[in-house]
Each structure stands twice: as C-alpha cells, then as structure tokens.
C-alpha cells in the first residue's frame, strides 16, 4: 500500500530525514515516534508529496513525487491543528474541500456525520472547540473515503476530552481497515492505534518495532512522562536506561515504562544522579481512551 525507499530531505546542510525506508500493508497502522526535530513531520510531508525529497514514496504504486495529485487523492490528511480561515463556516469549508475531492454534498454530509459533527454546518471555525476542529479535519480527510489516512500529531493541541473525541473517531477508522500513518508523542495513543512504530532519531529510522516491544505488553506496566529541568533529557534518558528502564524521548519529556508497584523507581534513579525532575504525568493505559491522569 505504502512504500518509502531511502527518503532523504535536506534543508541546506541539515538532513531532516535521512534515508528513511518502510513499507506498510493495507490496513496496517504505523506510528512515527521521536523527539522534536526527529523528522516525523518532514517524513509525513514527503509521504504527502508536498515537499521535494530524494528517494521514493509510492502509494498503491503511484509515485508521490511524479503524480502527487493522484497519490494525494488516496490520502486523507489530518494536521496538528486544522489550518483554515477562522471566519469560515463549517459547511462551506467542507464543501470547498468536497469540490477539490470531487465528492457530492451528500458525501460531505455523511463525512460530517461520521465524525459526530452533523448539525454544526452554520458554525464558524473559530467557534469550534479544539476537538471539534480536529474532527472536522478528519471529516475533510474522509470526504472521498481514501484508503490511507495520514495524521501529524492530531491530538497534541487538545485537552483530555478533545483527545478522547479524536481518538474515538480514529479507532473507528482503524476498525474500518484504513491504512494509517501518524506522528504522536503519546504512548497511549500509539498503543491504541498503531500496529507498528517507527522510532526516529535525527532524521533516521532507529527502530521499526511494535508498541509492545517499545513499552512492554500493555499488561501491568504503565507509561510515565517525566519532564526534567534544563536540556538534560538525553542525559536523563541514559541514566534511566542504565537503571534498566524502558525510555523513549518524544520532544515532550521522557516516556518511561514503569511497573505498577515501582512507579517511583525512575524518579529515584534521577534523584540519585542529581537530575532535577520538573514534572511527571501518568499517561493513560493503552486499552483506555482519553487523557493522562
């Protein structure tokens, strides 16, 4: 369904994506995981064919660089935050995108209904909550019923209820067999939606793994996000790894898998190494929707 081969994107001397390759079968769901600047968003833009790059990406055999328009007709894209004129109303905005995707107004209504936004056509975008905006973005993405959905941190700007709303909609799409690629910094989201995880570090694919391998089986352990003082995340991650913890960096702190009765262990390890912890957050379990507690 999707094949990326040695995708490389440079900005001057900086390699935002460096030889990333992966393949995705129909119905699979791939999470892009990594810290800020790891190349997740750039890789997504390469997959969409909206930026020039070396290497190749094909969607169902269609090269996104050469036949971007046709390739994008098979993709529904959900950005981090719906980027559209705030003064615009929901109905006309959706119809504009329906025009671009050559779908009828009936299909547009169905799409709006599928994300639970029916009846909001007259509302202005600025009057929608964050969750509603993202669901509208999902409605736009689903307009032509594309086989692939690409999402760039779709819940990162949302509160707990917004995250829950969007996660429910995405789970429904996953159940329908859509192929998904999404960037996320929430382990709970990745565990709930992804069948595979591409761990990215400095533009490279560091690991092609599963959520279970990355954070455990999803049984007893849960994931704790630790924010440390200053820019010592790499150091802190190394300390925790040496102490035997499963750690990943995602640009929003350290995600550490902790066992049910030893939740203080990583904090203790950091305390001993004189690393000051600024804040912690327990991310909700993968088999539950919603926010961190």
């Amino acid at each position: 369904m999707i094949a990326a081969t040695r995708v490389t994107k440079t900005y001057g001397r900086f390699r935002a994506v460096d030889g990333a390759s992966f393949e995705l079968s129909p119905g699979e769901s791939l999470a892009l995981w990594g810290s800020n600047g790891a190349g997740k968003t750039t890789l997504i833009r390469c997959v969409l064919g909206i930026t020039r790059f070396r290497g190749s990406v094909t969607i169902n055999g269609v090269d996104v660089s050469r036949r971007g328009k046709i390739a994008r007709s098979m993709i529904g894209y959900v950005p981090q935050e719906l980027a559209f004129h705030d003064d615009a109303r929901v109905g006309p905005s959706l119809m504009f995108f329906a025009g671009l995707r050559r779908v009828s107004s009936r299909a547009a209504s169905r799409s709006l209904e599928s994300v639970g936004l029916a009846g909001n056509e007259r509302k202005r975008l600025r009057d929608l909550s964050g969750g509603m905006k993202q669901r509208l973005a999902l409605a736009v993405a689903l307009l032509s019923d594309p086989p692939v959905i690409v999402l760039d941190e779709p819940t990162s700007n949302l509160d707990a209820s917004g995250r829950s709303e969007v996660a429910d909609s995405l789970r429904a799409q996953r159940a329908l067999g859509k192929t998904m690629i999404f960037a996320s910094h929430r382990p709970d989201e990745v565990r709930a939606l992804a069948s595979r995880v591409l761990v990215m570090e400095r533009g490279r694919v560091a690991r092609d793994t599963t959520p279970e391998e990355l954070w455990g089986s999803g049984g007893d352990p849960s994931v704790m996000r630790i924010m440390v003082e200053g820019a010592g995340e790499q150091v802190a991650a190394e300390i925790l790894r040496r102490a035997g913890h499963k750690v990943s960096l995602n640009g929003h702190g350290l995600c550490v898998t902790v066992e049910e009765h030893r939740k203080a262990a990583p904090i203790e390890s950091l305390f001993r190494a004189d690393v000051r912890v600024r804040d912690i957050e327990f991310l909700e379990r993968t088999d539950h929707s919603g926010a961190g507690s």
Partner: peptide, 17 residues
Amino acid sequence: ERGTLVYLLSQPVSRTE
C-alpha cells in the same frame, strides 16, 4: 505564513492549480 498552504497542498491539487 498562516500554515494554511500546507493543508491546501495536502489535498489532491497540483501546485499549478
């Protein structure tokens, strides 16, 4: 600048269009 161009280009349209 507003970030709407990325979203527009992610639709099935060419840059010429």
